[in-house]
Write a protein that binds this DNA or RNA. Structure first.
Length: 572
RNA sequence: CGGGGUGUAGCGCAGCUUGGUAGCGCGUCUGGUUUGGGACCAGAAAGUCGCAGGUUCGAAUCCUGUCACCCCGACCA
């Protein structure tokens, strides 16, 4: 491709709307342009990268036994009502009506469609397992689209669905997909980590996320330094000290005046009570009911864990006004004693002896409070976030926290959708059984952004060879010198004949402009053709990820560059 | 949705407090000189100042409404 013909509008300055590096660079390098919030056009270079990612995904899905299909984006309301998700999915679903006022959704995911499709055509265990996938736009009306391609409202996703006879079959399909995902992200040279995950709105039990490690990631991951444990903070647990508080004598409950003291830190400072000897009381609305959650003073609530425990669909913090109505005191003076609401106590807080808490009266706290003696919890469970430094639940080793971008997610769905949609087959005994399903997603467009987050420097993007839009760029330093242009054209022809993807920067620009653009768009190998080296029948070869420039004889440069490209494609 | 912020030429911004002929840098176009890390000189084009009302002799500037976009929180590939 000649650069003079290639549509890649680069920007010298950073568009003010872009905050994270991948967004800035993809805009500046001319890979994407925004249409509206969270909705983008992909320009030629961006499209090429997407295709490369899609190709790797396809190859691995096919290798794992998947078959590609393409399902509708426009999906009928009726189907979503049968699984209850027309309401459950809420405002996040784009909805529309046709001229007859029939309801439709723009597909945010495809469980309903695929389950119905398979149910219609597959009736026997002999046809299982069946693994179907597609690569297609998904639509989610995110509350807040942000970070360019990282959280869009329209994005490209690969979604595969597995249909098996039983749990055993699902385990096999799940393991296949898990391995295929590792192969995919390995091939794209991403630094990632697989973590245990909460399954969220999609449903099901076992679930893992594939997290690309990057500071700009929206997820927090906890992993053990000593063993293989790693989990999304939403799901992460730690080894608690089961014997904490054992043998400590309970002291008499005492109410103390604490005028103006509202926070945990206030009590630490003014009364010298350590954080870990206090509890915090949080009031939440769970599907309309007010509930109280008790945590140790140094812990934060994990809303996902609470939501799962309560099995509710809506969970949000109560406002101060209704808290006051319920408890007789405002934030900062709440406590479990005398509360009418159901009280859920975190396991760690439940083991505390003689802790302090609010007295449900402004300006007063209790000290020497004890669970059981002073109030009866509705239930004790794990409702807290694990944090860096907590002991690993598997081995007790130290856990670390890092940020990650979720690029893949695998779920065991079980029979959630096949039950709801009555999708079933006949087993060997002639009995009707619901399909046992799994679903497996990869954010294709997000993966492109994640790769940039991990692979860039001050000058621009550094594409890994397997997903680079072009592998080589040839820069004649002076486009008006015939000898340079002829040498460039010759090398271009040789490399193209070898099947490499090459840009020839034939533009009548100064060398500096060409170098800057080449670095910005991140082409892995750069061949510079300048007067000095050319006199000695040499050209310069530079790898985007290295500092040094090599001189190579003009007759062997094509073979030399081919080796670099092949090495880049081969390495994991 | 709550909180914060921004809308002025393709991009980045100034002007707004204190109303009076719309500016700067980059980019674009023309001509010339240049040609190894975003060149120089000369000239040119390009903006209903997000939109709609209002106040005023006069509004980018003041007031009201509205839309869009960005950032921080709850969601997820």
């Amino acid at each position: 491709m000649k650069a003079s013909q290639l549509f890649f509008p680069t920007l010298r300055e950073v568009p003010s709307e872009a905050e994270v590096i991948s967004h800035q660079l993809l805009l500046r390098a001319g890979f994407i342009r925004k249409s509206s919030a969270g909705v983008y056009s992909y320009l030629p270079l961006g499209r090429k990268v997407l295709r490369k990612i899609e190709t790797i995904v396809r190859e691995e899905m096919d290798r794992a036994g998947g078959q590609e299909v393409l399902m509708p984006i426009i999906q009928p309301r009726e189907l979503w009502e049968r699984t209850g998700r027309w309401t459950v999915y809420g405002d996040e679903m784009f909805r529309l009506a046709d001229r007859h006022d029939r309801g439709f959704a723009l597909g945010p995911t495809h469980e309903e469609i695929i389950t119905t499709l398979v149910d219609g055509e597959v009736h026997s265990y002999r046809d299982l397992p069946l693994l179907l996938y597609q690569i297609q736009n998904k639509y989610r009306d995110e509350i807040r689209p942000r970070f360019g391609l990282m959280r869009g409202r329209e994005f490209i996703m690969k979604d595969l669905y597995s249909f098996d006879e039983d749990d055993n079959g699902l385990d096999i399909s799940y393991r296949k997909m898990y391995a295929a995902y590792q192969a995919i992200f390995d091939r794209m040279a991403l630094r990632y980590r697989v973590v245990e995950a909460d399954s969220g709105a999609i449903g099901g039990n076992e679930s893992h996320e594939f997290m690309v490690l990057a500071d700009s990631g929206e997820c927090t991951i906890l992993y053990c330094e000593a063993c293989a444990y790693a989990a999304n903070v939403e799901k992460a647990v730690f080894m608690e000290d089961e014997s904490a508080g054992d043998g400590v004598a309970m002291k008499p409950l005492e109410k103390v005046a604490t005028p103006g003291l509202k926070t945990i830190q206030d009590l630490v400072r003014e009364l010298g009570i350590p954080e870990k000897q206090q509890v915090k009381t949080l009031m939440y609305y769970a599907d309309g009911e007010v509930v109280a959650v008790i945590l140790r003073g140094d812990r934060d609530l994990n809303e996902i864990k609470l939501k799962n425990y309560l099995d509710c669909s809506q969970l949000f913090m109560a406002d101060e006004h209704s808290v006051r109505e319920q408890c007789g005191a405002g934030f900062g003076s709440l406590g479990p004693i005398g509360l009418a609401a159901r009280i859920f106590v975190d396991s760690e807080a439940a083991r505390l002896k003689n802790f302090s808490c609010g007295a449900n009266q402004d300006g007063f706290h209790y000290i020497n409070c004890n669970v059981g003696r002073d109030f009866a919890p509705t239930a004790v469970g794990d409702f807290k976030n694990a944090i860096e430094g907590d002991p690993c639940p598997d081995c007790g080793g130290l856990m670390r926290a890092v940020r990650g971008i979720e690029v893949g997610h695998v779920f065991k769905l079980g029979t959630k959708y096949s039950d709801a949609l009555q999708a079933a087959f006949r087993n060997q005994e002639g009995e009707e059984r619901p399909f046992v399903m799994g679903c497996y997603g990869i954010g294709v467009s997000r993966t492109m952004a994640a790769s940039v987050e991990q692979n860039h420097d001050d000058d621009g993007i550094i594409w890994p060879m397997p997903i680079a839009p072009y592998q080589v760029i040839i820069i004649p330093v002076n486009s008006q010198k015939d000898d340079q242009m002829e040498a460039a054209a010759e090398i271009y022809q040789q490399l193209s004949n070898m099947g490499l993807e090459v840009i020839l920067d034939d533009r009548d620009e100064r060398a500096g402009v060409k170098f800057k653009d080449a670095d910005l768009i991140g082409i892995p190998v750069k061949i510079t053709i300048g007067p000095k080296a050319l006199q000695e029948n040499q050209v310069e070869v530079k790898k985007r990820w290295e500092k040094d420039v090599e001189r190579v004889g003009i007759t062997r440069v094509a073979d030399y560059v081919r080796t670099i490209v092949q090495d880049g494609l081969a390495q994991k």
